[in-house]
């Protein structure tokens, strides 16, 4: 039996009828067309599906859509303000924090959750924050650099 849930995604309220076994990842991608959230494993092991749920980074493949009822979701599509990229996005571009880009939305959202909590992380803290986000392309060096650069940019400019 489908259940009706309401979900605020990137600031927009959605009323949706979903089957209880469906995951937030499936609903975001298939029902809402928010395909920026990637599917890498569906078992919680890669972090490609990371979104922010009430501000915390979660693997959306492990969250049932019904459990997100009444909550706020931020996906990669909601991060930029129009054509103005978020400083983390800018930093990933400038510092080469991406190659194929498949891990990138999840990485960026994990970074956002970190920087919201801890605006001046050390490299070690960055590594802890993205330990659940796999990247096969970059070897992570430039991802860590990107996140540290973003932290500086944000605290310099007072953006959040």
């Amino acid at each position: 039996m489908k259940r009706t849930i309401s979900l605020t995604v990137n600031g927009d309220l959605h009323e949706l009828a979903v089957e209880p076994r469906r995951t937030l990842l499936e609903v975001l991608r298939d029902d809402l067309g928010l395909t920026g959230t990637k599917r890498g494993c569906s078992t919680g092991d890669c972090g490609a599906c990371t979104v922010l749920l009430d501000g915390s980074a979660v693997n959306s493949c492990l969250v049932l859509a019904v459990d997100a009822h009444g909550r706020e979701v931020l996906t990669i599509e909601g991060l930029a303000e129009g054509s103005q990229l978020h400083p983390i996005q800018d930093a990933f571009l400038e510092h080469g924090g991406l190659q194929c880009g498949y891990c990138t939305p999840g990485m960026i959202l994990s970074a956002k959750a970190l920087l919201d909590e801890n605006p001046h992380p050390t490299a070690e803290e960055v590594k802890v924050a993205i330990a659940g986000n796999l990247c096969r392309c970059t070897g992570y060096t430039k991802i860590v650099e990107s996140i540290l650069a973003a932290a500086e940019k944000i605290s310099g400019a007072g953006v959040s």
Binding site: D30, T35, K38, T75, E77, L93, G96, L98, G101, T104
Partner: peptide, 22 residues
């Protein structure tokens, strides 16, 4: 040192991978 040409699409979630096509 040039950022990736397709980078903006990839950091904003707009790049279309095969699984994104319906």
């Amino acid at each position: 040192r040039v950022p990736k040409q397709d980078g903006v699409a990839r950091v904003t979630g707009r790049a279309v991978y095969t699984d994104d096509i319906k």
